[in-house]
């Protein structure tokens, strides 16, 4: 069964993902659905969050949009329309020309995302030479400015250094510089702060806000941390087991989270103003206990509000009846508005 799409894509939509489904598995085996009918829209300048625990299909969603999934061993269905073109139908060459120029991506681990044997400057310049046809010297000069812009101190020196000579935060800044070098209209950030320590995380998020959000670049922010969402995203999609279980504008989601899973995620954010002895609510079990969406709600085995119908009928994604704003929900027995964690 397919989820009813959110409101049809309006003309000012930059990226419109519809019923994106990714299956892994070799011939003969029953395929494993990592992403199952995911639909969402991104407007220019908007920041959209994809939130969920490890293994819920966040990275696979973004890799599918970027055309970066392995060539063999998977099946992608649905569409991802970017500025009128369905990215999923482009051939290798066309998609390659768009990557880095129209859409760019940054990854979780900044150290392993950089080539260890090539200097930072050459790596940034490579993108400029590739897409803007710049000469080496011009590209190096521009790289210096880019490093400066992402807040790397002493950029002329850092240009000549190798990834292992930079700190984790600086490496992620360098990767952001590379991603933004050709001023893409959409940036996908796959857990860009997970590998960094807390103070650096805040800096990187601020940098993204400054450079991406304020310059009108659209951003898909992938995270398992609702704290990141609270500071950055306009629109939030909560994923569980490859499906969207709740979608709402940020204020709406934080004011009245309805899905028990969303509530669980919210409950696991440490709060500075929380009482000392207040326990961090964690969701019992893990995605490893995941069941497919075929027989009832996949979250039911871990859900404190699960009732009989949850195990019998697979819920569909529908407009929440009590919400005022756009608020889609896939749940038989949601928390009442203003639900508690």
């Amino acid at each position: 069964m397919t989820a009813p799409s959110p409101a049809p894509a309006t003309t000012d939509t930059l990226l419109s993902v519809r019923d994106l489904t990714v299956e892994f598995g070799t011939k003969g085996q029953t395929p494993f659905r990592a992403v199952d009918g995911v639909s969402f829209d991104v407007r220019p300048g908007q920041t959209v969050g994809l939130v969920g625990e490890s293994g819920c299909g966040k990275s696979v969603t973004s890799l599918a949009i970027m055309g970066l999934l392995p060539k063999r061993g998977n099946k992608v269905a649905g569409s991802a329309t970017f500025d009128g073109t369905d990215l999923l139908t482009l051939d290798d060459r066309e998609m390659r020309d768009r990557r880095g120029r129209d859409v760019a991506m940054i990854f979780q681990d900044p150290l392993s995302s950089l080539n260890p044997v090539v200097s930072i400057g050459v790596q940034v310049a490579e993108v400029l030479q590739r897409h803007r046809g710049m000469k080496k010297s011009a590209a190096m000069a521009e790289s210096r400015d880019l490093l400066d812009k992402v807040g790397i101190p002493d950029p002329s020196r850092r240009l000549k250094e190798y990834p292992h000579q930079l700190s984790g935060g600086m490496r992620q800044r360098a990767l952001i510089a590379m991603a933004l070098a050709c001023k893409p209209r959409l940036l996908i950030a796959d857990e860009p702060t997970t590998a960094l320590d807390v103070t650096i995380q805040a800096q990187i998020l601020n940098l993204l806000k400054e450079l991406v959000v304020d310059s009108g670049t659209a951003l898909i922010m992938i995270t398992h941390d609702l704290g990141v969402v609270a500071g950055l995203c306009d629109e939030v999609n909560v994923l569980y087991g490859g499906r969207i279980v709740e979608t709402a504008p940020r204020h709406e989601l934080f004011a009245s989270p309805r899905h028990p899973y969303t509530n669980g995620l919210l409950g696991s954010i440490p709060r500075l103003d929380g009482a000392r002895n207040e326990q961090l609510a964690a969701i019992p079990g893990s995605v490893a206990d995941n069941i497919p969406w075929t027989s009832g709600c996949a979250f039911a085995p871990r859900c404190s509000r699960a009732i009989d119908v949850c195990r019998a009928e697979t819920p569909s994604l529908e407009q929440d009846s009590v919400a005022i704003e756009d608020h889609l929900l896939r749940c038989h027995n949601p928390w009442p508005t203003g639900g508690e964690a």
């Binding site: 990557r99 880095g100 392993s112 995302s113 950089l114 080539n115 590739r130 590379m178």
Partner: peptide, 14 residues
């Protein structure tokens, strides 16, 4: 299949 090659491909490197 390493991260840095994926990252380079994500930037459209040929």
């Amino acid at each position: 299949s390493s991260d840095h090659v994926l990252a380079a491909r994500a930037l459209g490197v040929k």
